[in-house]
Deep mutational scan, measured.
Amino acid sequence: MEVRTIKVFTTVDNINLHTQVVDMSMTYGQQFGPTYLDGADVTKIKPHNSHEGKTFYVLPNDDTLRVEAFEYYHTTDPSFLGRYMSALNHTKKWKYPQVNGLTSIKWADNNCYLATALLTLQQIELKFNPPALQDAYYRARAGEAANFCALILAYCNKTVGELGDVRETMSYLFQHANLDSCKRVLNVVCKTCGQQQTTLKGVEAVMYMGTLSYEQFKKGVQIPCTCGKQATKYLVQQESPFVMMSAPPAQYELKHGTFTCASEYTGNYQCGHYKHITSKETLYCIDGALLTKSSEYKGPITDVFYKENSYTTTIK
């Protein structure tokens, strides 16, 4: 009895394709271990004539594949690729409408935090270190965002349907971005203890939790000093293409032309909904596939993004 075979390709990165001759009487799992086709788990399936010449994702289970996976995804987590594939199996079914010149995501599976993050990423200057993220990001900007969303979920250790947080998501993504040249110098002034300067680099240099107003941050924000008295913390120097200011959701007025974009969060910790506000020729609110415009805006804002380049204080 002759062994019926077909020729397929296996890959971990969709760049390096490895030619395989597979036995049609055995499952993919018996031949390769966990195997995925377009995100779908085909591990328990036997090869079919229609699979001839198709590319299958496999887990990096030998040295060659491990090197290829690390170079593309910059992670050695053995569960990463499987999590990416199972997320992709959902995100490829989502709709990605162009809204006001940006790629958004039609609401499904509690994905409003991903839509808000995706919209924000198209408006701030950011370059990702893992080629996987950078490639998928370019495709997302062009309207094909399924891979990018699935990668975000995998890097953030999230599953489809789980509630997510924009600030946490951005923080994970910033860790995989090139923020080497970003720098922030802060000064804390206390009447009792004097003053202390701190220099922050990388992710810490672009994120701040405690106030939404970048102007206020430049002037000074009140913080408790270690001595128990009130101290003032203010920005001395900022070198970065953008800054992200966050605070627990509270009524906040966004003035046209003073910011790049913002995240609105309605609801409580267990259950809520994100919308995205962007400042173009007027203010726009993007909620999944829905767009509304207004000249002014007041609502429960939790993150505001500002364009920056270089700032030095005039406070002496």
Results as ranks from 00 to 15, higher is better:
E2G: 10
V3W: 12
R4Q: 15
T5F: 11
K7S: 13
T11R: 04
D13M: 05
N16L: 06
M26A: 15
Y28M: 06
T35S: 12
L37F: 12
D38M: 09
G39T: 14
G39W: 07
E52M: 11
G53Y: 12
G53D: 10
Y57N: 08
L65W: 07
V67D: 13
E68F: 03
E68P: 05
Y72N: 08
H74W: 05
T76F: 13
S79E: 09
G82P: 15
Y84N: 05
Y84D: 04
M85Y: 11
S86Y: 08
H90T: 11
K93Q: 09
W94S: 02
Y96A: 04
P97A: 10
P97T: 12
N100G: 14
N100W: 05
T103M: 05
I105N: 05
W107A: 05
D109M: 05
N110R: 05
N111M: 03
T120D: 04
I124K: 03
K127C: 09
P130C: 08
D135F: 08
A136K: 03
R141Y: 06
A145P: 10
A146K: 06
N147W: 07
C149N: 01
A150R: 04
A150V: 02
I152G: 02
A154I: 04
A154L: 02
C156I: 08
N157F: 06
K158T: 02
V160I: 09
G164Y: 01
T169A: 06
H176T: 04
A177Y: 01
L179H: 05
K183L: 11
L186P: 02
T192P: 04
T192D: 14
G194N: 01
G202V: 01
A205W: 01
V206M: 03
V206Q: 02
T211A: 07
Q216G: 07
Q216M: 10
K218L: 05
G220H: 01
I223Y: 11
P224K: 14
K233S: 12
V236W: 07
S246C: 08
P248F: 15
P249Q: 01
H256R: 12
H256P: 14
S263G: 00
E264A: 12
T266D: 11
G267Q: 11
Q270K: 11
G272P: 01
D287W: 01
G288Y: 00
L291P: 06
S294H: 15
E296F: 15
K298A: 13
G299N: 04
P300F: 15
F305D: 07
T313N: 15
T314A: 13
I315T: 15
